[in-house]
Design a protein around this nucleic acid. Structure first.
Lengths: 168, 168
DNA sequence: GTTTGTGCAAAACCTTTGCATAACA
DNA sequence: TGTTATGCAAAGGTTTTGCACAAAC
């Protein structure tokens, strides 16, 4: 009925500019904005910098909370707007978590996620299941359903939380 | 880096009481409510009946819209409450679609979903990737991440919409 | 008769929108 | 200088909550 075999590999959550300095990475994002005709504002640079310095999955709420200290008066609407722009520019990926929350991810290549049910942290999975992958193709002949994209979402306990549980 | 092979099979969207009459199927749901000490109200019976007669994925909004004709004065809050109860009773499954919408699914066994990007319809996939599946186990040794559940969400074009596109 | 659920309304929550002001290029 | 973005406030949609009344057991 169903045979499954998947090799999944977890890679560090970092931007594609992993080897670059923080400043260089930010500048690359800036360039992408310029290339698409977007203006460079302090707010946009602040969001960019935040993701470079802290390359994790964040909600709009979390992003606003952190930047509010640095950029007083920053509007929530601006954060949402900026996130849309950065998504358009290919700098961020919008990720719909289970539970309905929307996260933004500095990893923009095809990958999947695993979320720890204890600490809530989201990990990147290096499982490139974008179109043309065997994962997608497998479903097609069986239904006449032409698969365009696949999202795999794992939930469980991360190594750190397992360690804590083992001690406690 | 990653080898993927998955056999995916689509099965009809029906409750586990597939072979039963409508009335019998509803009564089974009623029994599950009683077994857990829940009271049986006309509203709860109405939601149950709706899912038996129309075993598809529905949002709370859609459910309310349909039942409002039958049960005038039905409150939205009651629908949400009832859906929670039915989920607790194991009669419905809460499904978080990509895009943030919450659907309720009368299929409660482990399965996944494929959504047509044209008509929006959600199809059930018979890919039993619950704990102990190879899909889940695969991720574990690589990170120390203990997988408890996996959700696979496919997006593409269903057979019907492909046919329409071919004609148009 | 007691416990539980319903309905109403309002609140909470996240996200989007409109418009005047301010800032970028 | 002209275009675009920001900030504010308010609206939008979905879901949750509090309380009096009503219904199920």
């Amino acid at each position: 009925m169903s045979a499954t075999c998947l090799a999944v590999m977890v890679i560090p959550t970092l931007t594609s500019e992993r080897m670059m300095s923080t400043q260089t990475a930010v500048e690359e994002g800036v360039e992408r904005l310029r290339a698409l005709g977007y203006k460079l504002t302090p707010q946009r640079r602040a969001v960019l910098t935040l993701f470079v310095e802290q390359p994790t999955h964040m909600t709009a709420q979390e992003i606003w909370s952190q930047l509010e200290h640095i950029e007083p008066g920053l509007s929530r609407a601006t954060v949402y707007n900026t996130l849309d722009v950065l998504e358009q520019a290919g700098v961020l990926l919008k990720v719909q978590a289970e539970g309905g929350q929307t996260y933004y991810d500095p990893r923009v290549d095809a990958h999947h996620h695993a979320q720890c049910t204890r600490c809530g942290h989201i990990f990147d999975l290096d499982l490139p299941a974008q179109p043309s992958s065997a994962l997608l193709a497998a479903a097609t002949p069986l239904v006449g359903f032409s698969v365009e994209s696949a999202t795999l979402w794992l939930r469980g306990t991360c190594a750190a939380c397992q360690a804590h549980a083992g001690v406690a």
